[in-house]
């Protein structure tokens, strides 16, 4: 158990994270981009048309990873909010600040691809069902995290308010996830349920998995890069950062 505590404290140190995470960024960018290129080319160009949907199925390879990732980013932000509220760890606050705009972009991508997919399949780009509305709310939550911080002048107060919103907003995540099961919706139920055989044929499942992993890696790289930028902003003028800059 000792190493968990050590990692927790080390990650909490802006200096340790800033210097240590540098090599991660490039690795995640390259690996993630490679997977996204492979998965997207495969999905958009080489997968056979779906039995009923035809070529419309190809947007799945962008839509599903984006939607899944958007929720994951929010969960990470909510955990950071919890850590900040209880332990007042600066890094947790900076993570929320770094990840919120990225989460917003990813959610908008999920919504936009959903609209594009809905037009040929559903017959409409938008319906006000529980899944679409809760996902729209997720976009507003990300936006709200950014806006709230800017609306409050005092930095410590802003951080606390944002962390609280981040934490409370996590209730939306199970609603997004189970909306298609709890309520009648136009959106279809999940195709992949843990413990059950996937309802997606392997020809579609493999490129989808490649893209999901690619999205996660690439965006993790973006979040870490943004977090490092926040660290430079907040730690500007500290001795360790000056030393680091003069050395590199």
């Amino acid at each position: 158990m000792g190493w968990i505590k050590t990692t927790f404290h080390k990650t909490g140190s802006p200096r340790w994270f800033f210097t240590g995470a540098r090599s991660w960024v490039v690795g995640l960018y390259v690996f993630g981009a490679l997977l996204i290129v492979v998965g997207s080319t495969w999905g958009l160009g080489f997968v056979p048309p779906e039995r009923l949907q035809g070529n419309s199925v190809r947007i799945l390879f962008i839509h599903a990873p984006a939607a899944h990732l958007a929720e994951a980013i929010y969960v990470a932000i909510a955990i950071a909010g919890f850590v900040f509220l209880v332990w007042r760890m600066k890094m947790a606050d900076m993570l929320i600040q770094a990840a919120a705009p990225i989460g917003f972009v990813v959610t908008v991508l999920a919504l936009a691809t959903g609209i594009i997919w809905g037009i040929p399949t559903w017959g409409t780009g938008w319906v006000w069902d529980a899944r679409t509305v809760s996902t729209l709310l997720l976009a507003f939550l990300f936006f709200g995290l950014v806006a709230l911080r800017q609306a409050i002048g005092r930095e410590d107060r802003a951080s606390r308010a944002v962390a609280l919103l981040a934490l409370v907003g996590v209730i939306n995540i199970p609603i997004i996830k189970y909306s298609v099961e709890w309520f009648t919706t136009l959106h279809q139920p999940p195709s992949i349920v843990i413990g059950e055989k996937p309802a997606i044929a392997p020809v579609f499942l493999v490129p989808l998995a490649v893209n999901v992993l690619g999205f996660y890696c690439f965006v993790a790289g973006v979040v870490i890069a943004a977090l490092r930028a926040r660290i430079v902003e907040r730690e500007a003028g500290t001795q360790w950062l000056r030393d680091w800059i003069s050395k590199s």
Partner: peptide, 15 residues
């Protein structure tokens, strides 16, 4: 208005 609810099964065209 009639909208289609596409299901969660993804099966290639040939199958």
């Amino acid at each position: 208005e009639v909208l289609a609810k596409h299901d969660e099964n993804y099966v290639p065209h040939e199958l």
